[in-house]
């Protein structure tokens, strides 16, 4: 069976070869001779051709550089103005213009003159960034953002108004301690002038402790708050009336030492 298939393939191949040999029968005629050259005048030389004159980049900041590139054909005198002068036919040159400058390439040759311009736009550098906005100091932020908490006479419990004040203070203190992780705050307890100086030392200590404990409950780190009682030794004001007394019955927040 295999032998019969080979025989058939061979026969087919011969048949194709015979068919191709049959087309090569008629050769093509030779082409006609070229026409005789015409009687022409002396050829005029071409003017110089500037194939390239460009500044890259075309826009720079003052102090940066741009590169002029050029390519000229058919010229024997090539200059670039201003400030560069005679150059060769192909080249490049770094330029440092301090202001916007239009460079002119002049190419002169037997065929005449050609000009082309390239402009380097110079922009002023952006003004230096302004100094960063002055950062509030620890002391400033404490004075601005953390308020005194006030107390009733001979009391150290946190009143409703003090509760609101201390709640705001807790947020402020947490933010301040984030920005000033190395600092601490002195929670000062103060009293009005009426109780005895000795008892007021103890009362001021209670007020400072109450305020601190409240702040710690609200997440202010306990190790950042140090209590101190001033009793009635450091009054805010010294008049003998209730409004002055109230101003002195307080927990005050001062930079820690």
């Amino acid at each position: 069976m295999l032998t019969k298939k080979y025989v058939a393939a061979l026969l087919l191949s011969f048949a194709i070869l015979f068919a191709a040999g049959c087309k090569k029968k008629a050769p093509a005629p030779p082409p006609p001779p070229p026409p005789p050259p015409a009687e022409a005048p002396a050829p005029k030389p071409n003017p110089p051709m500037i194939t390239l004159f460009a500044a890259e980049p075309g826009t720079i900041e003052r102090g940066q550089s741009s590169t002029l590139k050029w390519a000229v054909e058919g010229a024997d005198d090539i200059t670039i103005e201003p400030g560069i002068g005679r150059v060769s036919a192909n080249g490049s040159r770094q330029v440092f213009p301090s202001s916007t400058t239009t460079y002119t390439l002049i190419a002169r040759g037997p065929g005449g003159e050609a000009r082309r311009t390239a402009t380097v736009n110079v922009t002023a550098p952006p003004p230096p960034p302004p100094p960063p906005a002055p950062k509030a100091t620890f002391e400033e932020r404490l004075a601005r953002e953390v308020q005194d908490a006030f107390f009733d006479y001979d009391k150290s419990n946190i009143r409703d108004d003090a509760r609101a004040t201390l709640t705001r203070n807790a947020d402020a203190l947490k933010a301040i301690f984030r920005d000033f992780p190395d600092r601490s705050v002195s929670v000062e307890g103060h009293c009005d002038e009426r109780g005895s100086a000795e008892y007021n030392l103890g009362l001021g200590d209670r007020r400072a402790t109450s305020a601190k404990e409240f702040l710690v409950q609200l997440g202010v780190p306990a190790d950042k708050l140090r209590t101190i009682s001033y009793g009635k030794e450091r009054p805010q004001c010294t008049e003998s009336n209730e409004s002055c007394w109230q101003r002195n019955r307080r927990a005050h927040f001062a930079p820690g030492q």
């Binding site: 000795e198 030392l201 103890g202 402790t209 140090r226 101190i228």
Partner: peptide, 25 residues
């Protein structure tokens, strides 16, 4: 936070005072 209001005993060998070592003075 506070040690204050000291006083001597009559023999001078001891001192009494108020302290907030345990909380309240």
């Amino acid at each position: 936070s506070m040690n204050a209001t000291p006083a001597f005993t009559p023999d001078g060998r001891q001192v009494l005072y108020a302290s907030t070592a345990s909380g309240y003075a």
